[in-house]
Amino acid sequence: MGEVNLSQVLDQNRSFVDRVIAESGQDIRQCYQCAKCSGGCPGSTAMDYPPNQIIRMLMLGMKDKVLKSQTIWACMGCNTCTTRCIRNIEVASVMDTLRQEAVKAGYTDKAASVISFNESFLWTVRNFGRLFEAGMAMMNNTKTGNFMKDMQFGLPLMLKGKASMFPHRIKGRRELKNIFEKTCGGGK
């Protein structure tokens, strides 16, 4: 990890740590590093820092390292860590907050594919009210430049009557657009 002046870092990033605590509703300072969260984490093999280390790094104010980590994007939100935490910290909720913070701060290198998937998914929901898989897949493949991605699933899904060529439009689309506009600025 190299050399880090911890007290200086913490002073600089105190507002960030406070915001993560407030947004997630989780008092991470309660953590005493038992590492139960990491022991049971099904995503840990794809992470650069196990979840307990992310919590410790947060406590020390290491904003950049945390937001640039692979860990926050390898987390699948299965809540095993939250279930097992002996200090009652919802670790998975902290990961949610960190992903939102990473996007806001522009730390998106390691997450381009997740962000493009989420944007494509939410774009269809904002416009039609429900998920439109074919539209989402096309949009996502265009964004990522990977045009044939998951095409091996597309045709079999259609043949089984499991994917529609056309979106279903709900009546309350204006209400939904309003929700998107007032929360995440309309979604991209």
Binding site: T97, N118, F121, L131, G172, E175, T183
Partner: peptide, 25 residues
């Protein structure tokens, strides 16, 4: 009647309020 998508993990990775408003509707 006239149900919408719950937003799934894409919403709660994106915005906390959005992730609650969609299922609350």
């Amino acid at each position: 009647p006239d149900w919408n998508c719950c937003g799934a993990s894409s919403a709660h990775m994106t915005d906390h309020l959005l992730s609650l408003a969609l299922p609350a509707r």
